[in-house]
Design a protein around this nucleic acid. Structure first.
Length: 376
RNA sequence: GCGAGUAUGGUGAAGGGGUUAACACGGCGGAUUGUGGUUCCGUUAUGCUAGGGUUCGAAUCCCUAUACUCGCC
């Protein structure tokens, strides 16, 4: 079945919403943070660990699975869920972001028909189209498929942003026309760069195509925070209240709070797992670098109050040793903690929305988070 | 005891008279937003075993000492 979004509460002071997403794999509360598992795995974690952390939906990537092992292998395995043994909802990104990062010469490589770029594995020339992206996702059998879009770089001049945004709309239509999987939902993506009229136009035109949910793309690509928040505001103002809104690629704790206050329901980000692999942990007092010498003999958990497996069982000293020694168990413990941190953040935000005190929560969170170091 | 060789940072080392001593590892710190699993960036020897000499100028040439290494009694 297609997912169903159920709005249960609108905060009175902000645009934030508490709701439910009903899926084939159960019902999940929003706002929600989705860990990223590009290659059919959330790096270093087992599906059981992901579930224990409390993650509902996870993200995987069309582009990566297309190249390796190939969508046919996953189709033969019985779909992505069976292939990776994850019995929770999976959202697949369309490959649009890879276009942004792999197409070297945008004017030449991005055509009306599709996008030329080179494989990050062997440099082989590839051509991805809106139709192909959707067909691959249909085969992968994820729960939510994303339209194939172009993530516009920042800054981008108005002419380019307009041209690209209009093309993304045509691509969305083309993808929707070939979409063929009754068990799967399809989201549209709002682009428009930093321009208010383009963001609003993109949102309005995308909504006209009637997708199962709407995401805001083209953010967190180097723009300052205020610009990002404006991009969200412009798009949200044109999105329907009865469909989920997904802010793509955002996972900085403060950005998640700001997003929720602006009406976002879903987030995904590589940040918790990427910074974990490089030795960093989110805490309520800011991000810490576990490799710092001051943690060498710190025999306390990352956060006393955290209920994650890493904090309940291991010390900063031990985790620091593992990260310094390049042991994968250290990366795993920090990944568990960081995903739990963002998941807990969204849990707190849901409570705040129910209690109408999210603005107070934001104030207190930011004060503590910016206070950092000395308190750890 | 005699002869030969080598001494450069935490480590391995480059440099064989000319501005701020290469590079690598390690150390310390930072970055990371629709994934970079082992990534990227910054920083880290006011000094070349010690003392003396030659020279406008010495890690580089000379002398002495010391410590290791390899031969020979």
């Amino acid at each position: 079945m297609k997912i169903k979004y159920e709005l249960l509460k609108n905060d009175t002071k902000t645009k934030s919403r508490y709701g439910l997403i009903h899926t084939n794999y159960g019902t999940f509360e929003t706002p929600i943070f989705m860990p990223v598992g590009t290659q059919a795995t959330v790096k270093t974690l087992s599906p059981e660990e992901i579930k224990e952390i409390g993650s509902g939906i996870i993200l995987s990537n069309t582009y990566h699975l297309w190249l390796r092992p190939g969508e046919d292998v996953i189709y033969k395995a019985g779909g992505l869920h069976k292939f990776m043994n994850y019995d929770g909802p999976i959202l697949t990104d369309s490959g649009g972001f890879q276009v942004f990062s792999l197409a070297k010469n945008k004017k030449k490589d991005i055509t009306e028909d599709g996008v030329h770029f080179k494989s990050h594995i062997d440099g082989k020339k590839l051509f991805l189209t809106p139709e192909l992206s959707i067909q691959i996702q249909n085969k992968l059998d994820s729960d939510i498929a994303m339209s194939f879009d172009e993530c516009i770089p920042y800054p981008a001049d108005y002419e380019y942003a307009k041209e690209s945004t209009e093309r993304t709309l045509r691509w969305a239509k083309r993808g929707k026309d070939v979409f063929n999987n009754d068990n799967q939902s399809l989201f549209g993506i709002v682009q428009g760069g930093e321009y208010e009229d383009l963001r609003k136009m993109s949102a309005r035109e995308t909504v006209k195509m009637d997708f199962d949910g709407y995401s805001i793309g083209g953010t967190s690509v180097g723009e300052d925070k205020d610009t990002m928040y404006k991009m969200i505001d412009y798009a949200i103002s044109e999105l329907p209240i009865d469909k989920p809104r997904y802010l793509m690629g955002v996972g900085d704790p403060i950005d998640i709070i700001e997003g929720v206050i602006r009406g976002i329901d879903m987030f995904d980000c590589v940040l918790p797992t990427r910074i974990a692999r490089h030795g960093n942990a989110f805490t309520r007092y800011g991000k810490i670098n576990i490799k710092n010498a001051k943690y060498k003999e710190d025999f306390t958990p990352i956060e006393e109050s955290c209920d994650c497996y890493a904090c309940k069982n291991y010390t900063k000293s031990y985790i620091r040793h593992l990260i310094v020694a390049n042991e994968s168990f250290g990366q795993r413990l920090l990944s568990i903690h960081n995903i739990r941190f963002l998941t807990k953040l969204t849990e707190d935000l849901r409570e705040c929305i129910k209690n109408d005190n999210i603005l107070e929560y934001r104030k207190q969170f930011i004060e503590k988070y910016r206070d950092n170091n000395e308190n750890i």
